[in-house]
Nucleic acid binder design. Structure first.
Length: 396
RNA sequence: CGGGGUGUGGCGCAGUUGGCUAGCGCGCGUGGUUUGGGACCACGAGGCCGGAGGUUCGAGUCCUCUCACCCCGACCA
């Protein structure tokens, strides 16, 4: 993409209401635009990052045998009346008879009922990546707590507890892989079940001062407990816990039969008897992941995207050598995603913007580099520069 | 939802005890000079001062209401 033609543009100043590092950097670098409290547009750069994170999630969710679906955001009130969740404060109610989905147990459970009749139909697992609506009394921290946000929600259905626990464990492993691939070190944290279940749930937390959850972490076991649980020592090794703040990027719940009961989701077992289906649900805050990555991976000059989620692999800068740069841009674009800064402005601005946007590799084409029969290559996370031939740009 | 704060060109801000054509920086446009870490000169465009009502000869400025946004807390998949 040519920067001169992109909707995404950088800004030297940032709106005074950008309230957090992720909001400031993502706004200034042209990834997002705030529309209202907790409501953002994703500009081209931001949409690219979202798409890459979504792809990682899809790969890992498909790998554990779940299928992608898409349920409506506009949902019937009567479904929520059956579970007693129709009048929670965070629910948007666009009309008398509708609720904007803030979670989808009320939709997916009746949906699964159309498929599940016998133990032969279990297990079943479906997920979606969709915008959720929650009327947060206080939206804040950029993309970390919005009133409208992108979420991956997965729901699983099982004939017995052992099968549910097995899948729960498989999702746990898959989540660690997702977050690691996104460049984040996550901790498995025990927490309460909130509106969803009376059982304990597990959160995936990234330790950062930007997060709003108070945690107690055992660094040795890499386990944690949400401070709401009032735990004094590590339940595994009995060791000391450190107090940390975290950003909750994933949450998994053992739902038991709470929603199966509400919608009479049962199945016929091997003995011809009727039993209730056991359910699990598993969420990843996709937009919150974008924010968390920004909070973790940045420096004073701007964002530093991990290769796996970067909007572009290469940020190509032309310093007065537009023709040569254009040729390199065309060739390189056949192999990877390239952002070409073709603007007619000073070198300093181009360098500053490359740092701000934070693509992994910066390539400079100038008179100096052409005399040396190559281009200058610099990684965003390093100070070292090197002249490399144009066909070696992508080799590390 | 309680307490506090802020709303003035796209962004950041200044506007005195009410006073006359509402300023500054950045950005934007045109012309020119520059050209490896946010260059410079000249000219120029752009604002119902969040909204409604009121006080006054006169309101960005004072009063009332309202909306939006931010902070602290409560809340929180």
């Amino acid at each position: 993409m040519k920067l001169s033609r992109s909707l995404s543009q950088t800004s030297k100043t940032v709106a005074h209401d950008a309230d957090s590092v992720n909001a400031k950097l993502l706004t200034q670098a042209g990834f997002i635009k705030k529309e209202a409290a907790g409501v953002y547009s994703y500009l081209p750069f931001g949409k690219r990052v979202l798409a890459r994170i979504e792809q990682i999630i899809r790969e890992e969710m498909n790998a554990i045998g779940s299928e992608e679906i898409l349920m409506p955001a506009l949902t019937p009130l009567e479904n929520w009346q059956k579970t007693g969740r129709a009048d929670v404060d965070i629910a948007f109610r666009p009309t008398e008879k509708t609720v904007l989905g803030w979670s989808h147990e009320e939709i997916v459970t009746p949906l699964a009922k159309t498929r599940i009749k016998s133990y032969r139909d279990l297990p079943l697992a479906v997920y979606q990546i969709q915008t959720k609506f929650r009327n947060e009394p206080r939206a804040k921290s950029g993309l970390l707590r919005g009133r409208e946000f992108l979420m991956k929600d997965l729901y699983s259905f099982h004939a017995n507890r052992k099968d549910l626990e097995q899948f729960y464990a498989a999702v746990t492993e898959a989540y660690f892989r997702v977050f690691e691939r996104c460049g984040l070190k996550s901790f498995l944290v025990s927490a309460g079940g909130g509106e969803f279940t009376e059982n304990i749930s597990h959160e995936f937390q990234v330790l950062t001062e930007a997060g709003e959850d108070k945690l107690k972490i055992c660094k040795k076991c890499e386990l944690g407990w949400n401070a709401e649980l009032e735990i004094a020592k590590c339940e595994k090794c009995g060791g000391e816990l450190t107090e940390e703040k975290g950003s909750e990027i994933g949450n998994i719940f053992d739902l038991g039969t709470k929603y199966s009961d509400a919608f009479d989701l049962n199945f016929t077992n091997e003995n011809g008897e009727s039993e209730m289906v056991l359910m699990g649900c598993y969420g990843i805050g996709v937009s919150r992941l974008v924010a968390t990555i920004a909070e973790i991976h940045h420096d004073d000059s701007g964002l530093i995207w991990p290769e796996s989620v970067a909007p572009f692999q290469v940020h190509l800068i032309s310093l007065g050598e537009d023709q040569a740069a254009e040729k390199i841009y065309r060739e390189l674009s056949k192999k990877t995603e390239v952002l070409f800064d073709d603007r007619d402005i000073s070198a300093g601005i181009k360098f500053a913007d490359a740092d701000l946007i934070g693509c992994p590799i910066r390539i400079v084409v100038s008179k100096k580099t052409l005399e040396k029969k190559g281009v200058e290559r610099k990684k965003r996370d390093s100070e070292k520069t090197a002249i490399v031939p144009t066909d070696k740009i992508l080799q590390s």
